[in-house]
Write a protein that binds this DNA or RNA. Structure first.
Lengths: 211, 211
DNA sequence: GACTGTGAAGCCATTCACAGCT
DNA sequence: AGCTGTGAATGGCTTCACAGTC
């Protein structure tokens, strides 16, 4: 307990644990051991205990963890005890898909603003939200106090848009464009690179072939 | 050189280096030092050299790396010296976006088959490819000798579809559904969990607030 | 002088193994 | 008896620092 340097891998697993616990809740399970959670998410039980121990003592020796209780703790640790407004920049194929993606809404991420610089797209509706011109981006971030931006713009526009978001006061960016972005270290940046994932598969297939 | 255990982090960086080199090629740059590459992709120069050294001696001391040459090596190491046929299972929002995603095509990943179990979607065209009923999945994988499957189905269907793909002889799966999948260890599995990424951001925002 | 390739050191995450609680 | 919480041991990745090469 009482540590401030949490491994990123731990944080990612917490997110996975939390979703698995939600599933257990649906199934009416009251109690789960670290071993049961481990099985469910594909890690070791020691790993589960270590990860949870960073944040407190949530379990009962001899028994395990109360599912509802632990789920609540994890939601709170992950900052999911309230909804997040997010702005989506870029309403192309990928952006549109993310805007409509149920998985975000289910976990409390609410796409409240969508902007694009393509006049042909502006005005389209994605779910409840109308695509607005990119010029209103700064204003929307400020007036809605949006903390999180999701970037699905072409690589060539990515740094530009990022600079504007940063200037507007965004706190975190999830970047889907295949470009390395520079942000001040007050802004949290995560990159999701879809083709990198396929290329890792490709690499492994290639290796296997040569035994 | 001559090592068989390559860190996954290294493989992911190789993919990023390769894309950065492509960019340099476009800009007409002939030579790049490890420091230049490091700057471009946001890692340390020692890291770049270590990563490359797993696979050979590609550089020239005092000079750096020839961009075209290194790019070629990386493409080949990553198994990108030929195109890959991939099958996309699930043509909902996310599936459709991925089917049309330029980033895949650019890197030689060719979505040659798309299947879905929703009769309302079957028959739709996504780019050049028509969505087919899920019943043909096994047959297509076999007849087209497809090695890679991309899963964008609801969590509840994910394991089922996976079992069928494995049985059909798929070699690698990129899973976008938020479920832990069980596959035999002859099949390579990677998970891309979109909400996990947002939740890591949320966690970090939460931490920062408490200093 | 510049820059690579690489052993050694340092650091961080995971696994082990067991004391301690219920 | 069962299962958590945790120090210690292990393993793996990254950084350091420099000898070697152009």
């Amino acid at each position: 307990m009482k540590v401030y340097k949490i491994p990123e891998a731990t944080v990612m697993r917490l997110s996975v644990y939390s979703r698995f616990l939600h599933q257990l809740l649906d199934e009416g399970v009251n109690t789960a051991s670290s071993e049961a959670i481990a099985q469910g998410v594909g890690v070791s039980s020691a790993q589960v205990r270590k990860d949870l121990a960073y944040f407190g003592e949530f379990g009962t020796r001899g028994v395990g963890y109360r599912v509802d209780e632990l789920y609540g703790h994890l939601k709170s640790i992950l900052g999911l005890d309230h909804d997040w407004n997010i702005i989506l920049v870029g309403a192309g194929k990928l952006g549109s898909a993310l805007a409509l993606y149920q998985g975000f809404a289910e976990r409390g991420f609410h796409v409240s603003t969508i902007v694009d610089n393509d006049k042909k797209i502006v005005g389209n509706k994605l779910g409840m939200v109308t695509v607005e011109p990119i010029e209103v981006m700064t204003q929307r971030v400020k007036e809605k106090d949006i903390k999180v931006g999701v970037l699905t713009v072409p690589a060539s526009a990515a740094q530009n848009v990022t600079d504007l978001l940063v200037e507007a006061g965004i706190k975190a960016i999830l970047n889907f464009s295949p470009r390395v972005l520079k942000v001040p270290n007050t802004v949290i940046l995560r990159n999701v690179d879809l083709s990198v994932n396929l290329e890792v598969l490709s690499f492994n297939l290639n290796m296997n072939k040569k035994n």
